[in-house]
Structure formats: structure tokens, C-alpha cells
Amino acid sequence: MFWKKKQFQVDLQDDIPLNTPIDDLTYIVLDTETTGLALQSGDRLIELAGVKIQSLNVQEEQTFHTYINPNRKIPEQIKQLTGITDHNVTGAPNSADAIKAFFQYVEDSHAVSLVGHYVSFDNLVFKKELQLEGYRFSPPTTLDTLELLSFLYPAKQIKDLEEYAIDFGTRIYDRHTALGDCMTTAYLFCELVYRLKEKGLGTWGDLLKAGEINKRI
């Protein structure tokens, strides 16, 4: 990871043969919480989490988590939804430092890809927060569980993360917390990858084709 001419660059281990088995790869699942969805109007990042998946096993002991000081009050409805209070973020790192620490964790894990549920929003959060510090951000290789669901089940109705976890019988953790949703997404992702493999799609190239999102930010 480096910053050259204010370009925020992330180095993933994604330059690998497309026939590499999915099971041999490492992924980092992420989730963010913000003061709201109106990022263009001043909503800010308040929590960031990640968990490592290795050999299609969620490494629950290898997580990343931090609160972030948004330099503004957290709306009451967000406090009620997430349980995050102004006290939690007082003294927490600023967004740029938190994001840098997160991507250092990603690189240290030798991950090939980020994974998220509606991860384009998380990437937009990174982009907006880093812009405030004068950085340009280009998302690294990213996989979205929604894209995988669409590939596997094109007619399936779009649902909430918890509803998907119930449908597929995967674990559910604390909702609307970055670490909880991150863990829920991680187990859902592993289940979806197993279902890809049942269809004979077991390589890095297959996974990219099934789930790599378009850069929509």
C-alpha cells in the first residue's frame, strides 16, 4: 500500500493464474457503518470491520475492528440502529487513519480480494472519506455476495442480509454492527462459493466471472 501523488493504492495478491482453485485463496470480508446514507451531504464513517477467510474457513480470531471519529454528532436513529454512541467514537482514529490501518491488515493477510454485501456502498464510503484527505481511491478487486446470488439464482428476490442468511442456513451475528454484519456476510459468502463449486465452478477465474462487480463508484 502506498500513496503517490495522493493516489491511494492497495496491493492485493490478485495477479494469480485464473485456474487457481478457489479453496487455495484468502479473502477479506468487510463492512462499514455510517451516520447515514447521504454521503454527498455530510454523512460519515463511524465503524469499520474485516474478517479473514482462508481455505473457505472463516478465521474468527483474525478480525479487524475500529470505531472512527466522524467529527459530528451521530443521529439518534443511527445510535438506536447500530448501538454506536458519541462516546464510542470519542478518541477514535480519523477516517483516513482507520482506512489505512484496515488496508494494511488486508495486505498483511495476503488477500486476493475484498468481499462484502452490497460492497459498492463500502467502496463509496472509502472514496468519499479519502477524498476529504485529498486522496484518489480506486477500488481493488472486490466481490459482492449480491452479485454471486444474482449469478446463482437470477430470479431470486433481493432481500436483507439476515434473510439471505436464514434462507441458506448460515450463521447470523449482531445486525447493523460492522463486525457482526461482516461475520454474517463471511459465512454467507463461503456457502455461495460451495454452491458455485457444486456447479463445477471452482477456480479463481470462475469466481471472478460469477461475482466481480463493475466499478460503480
Rank of each mutant, 00 (worst) to 15 (best):
I16R: 13
I78S: 14
W3T: 13
N19T: 15
L132C: 12
Q131M: 12
K4W: 12
A49M: 00
H117R: 04
D167S: 11
D11G: 10
L179N: 00
Y173C: 01
A155L: 08
V29A: 04
K156M: 06
G180V: 02
T185D: 01
K73R: 04
S41H: 15
A38R: 13
F2T: 15
T26K: 15
A92M: 09
F137I: 08
L143W: 08
T141Y: 14
L18N: 13
E133W: 05
Y153L: 01
W3Q: 11
V51K: 09
Y194W: 08
A186R: 02
F168W: 06
S120R: 08
V125R: 02
D24T: 12
S41F: 15
S138F: 10
A165C: 09
P139W: 10
A49D: 04
L12T: 08
A155K: 09
N94K: 08
I158G: 04
D11P: 12
N57G: 09
P140D: 03
Y187H: 12
L188Q: 02
V89M: 03
T142Q: 07
A165W: 00
D174L: 11
L25E: 07
V29L: 14
N123E: 11
S120K: 08
F137C: 12
L48A: 14
K215Y: 11
S150A: 10
P140E: 06
Q80N: 10
D160C: 00
L12G: 04
F137R: 04
D43N: 15
E212I: 11
L146N: 03
L130Q: 10
G202F: 06
L132E: 13
Y153C: 04
N57K: 15
S95C: 03
D15F: 15
L39T: 08
F102C: 03
P139N: 02
M1L: 14
E191I: 01
I74S: 12
L37R: 10
I166Q: 06
T35D: 05
D97A: 11
R44T: 02
K215E: 11
P93V: 04
P17G: 15
L30K: 02
L161Q: 01
H117P: 05
R175M: 03
E133K: 07
A49I: 00
A38Y: 13
L45P: 07
L132H: 10
Q13D: 15
N19H: 14
V10T: 12
D108F: 06
V119P: 03
H176V: 05
H176I: 05
S55G: 13
L132F: 02
I99W: 02
G42T: 09
T170F: 01
E33L: 15
L45V: 09
Q157D: 05
T141D: 11
K159Y: 04
R72W: 00
F103Q: 03
L130H: 10
P70V: 09
T203C: 13
N123S: 06
V112W: 15
R175A: 06
L30T: 11
I172F: 10
G116K: 00
D11F: 09
D206T: 08
K73L: 08
V29R: 12
L124K: 04
P139R: 05
F189Q: 03
K79L: 03
A186T: 04
F8C: 11
L201K: 14
